[in-house]
């Protein structure tokens, strides 16, 4: 049996804006096990990013329980959360979020600068990560010299270079054409397949969700459906 990594019990998130309370997540109960490949779908504004940010330790829940890797994220301070993110979370963004003035290599190396690795070890890790996304030959390219799909693959390399426990991807194909999207999803699926990386994939796109083994739906802050793969795409 796979290890229980994330457990949410009656988790909620309420935002206050101009004195009005908006309940963005309500009574979320979710368990994620190691090696899971989970997709999270739902209309825009349903709270998908909020949920992902909470798992990443970027946002905090307003109520309920949250245990991630047996750590109580709610009681950690900001620095502890930052360290926790660096060790356990690889984040992939919709807009890639590469640093434009750094090369692919420089971008992928960034999270390693917070580790005690030597320059040589860092180089090895970076090249391994770039190899996994098939971009070793683009190490010296700047983001503007890469296609969207390549940029996102560099971002994935950056997310996995520290060998994190999770990969959290927030609409990683949202900015890509179908072909590039396919490439990126294959890379993610490969990481799950070959390296048993736990992946939570937020997406709009049913075809992207089809790569996941477990599919969740969020609607107006409620986790309403759970569906197990494999399912073929229509």
């Amino acid at each position: 049996m796979n290890e229980l990594l994330i457990e949410m019990k009656n988790l909620s998130r309420v935002f206050r804006r101009d004195g009005v309370e908006i309940q963005v997540l309500r009574d979320i109960n979710l368990r994620v096990f190691s090696s899971d490949f989970i997709s999270l779908m739902g209309p825009s504004g349903s709270g998908k990013s909020t949920l992902l940010n909470i798992i990443a330790g970027i946002d905090r829940p307003s109520g309920g329980e949250l245990r991630v890797l047996d750590a109580d994220l709610i009681s950690m301070n900001e620095d502890q959360l930052a360290g926790w993110r660096n060790r356990h979370v690889g984040f992939v963004f919709q807009h890639f979020n590469l640093i434009p003035v750094l090369t692919a290599f420089g971008n992928v190396e960034l999270p390693l600068l917070l580790t005690p690795l030597s320059k040589k070890e860092r180089r090895e890790h970076v090249m391994t990560a770039l190899n996994l996304v098939g971009l070793t030959d683009r190490a010296d390219h700047y983001p503007r010299q890469l296609s969207g799909g390549q940029e996102q693959r560099v971002a994935i390399a950056r997310a996995i270079v520290t060998d994190p426990t999770f990969i959290l991807a927030d609409e990683p194909t949202g900015d890509l054409d179908a072909e590039s999207a396919e490439e990126v999803l294959k890379v993610l699926a490969g990481l799950n397949d070959q390296f048993q990386k736990t992946i939570v994939l937020v997406t709009h796109d049913p075809r992207a969700a089809a790569y996941a083994h477990i599919r969740h739906y969020l609607d107006k802050g409620v986790l309403i459906q759970k569906e197990h793969a494999p399912l073929s795409v229509t």
Partner: peptide, 14 residues
């Protein structure tokens, strides 16, 4: 600010 967010999400502290 977006780059700052990216760096922070990678684990860099304030």
């Amino acid at each position: 600010s977006k780059e700052v967010a990216t760096l922070r999400s990678l684990g860099f502290r304030r």
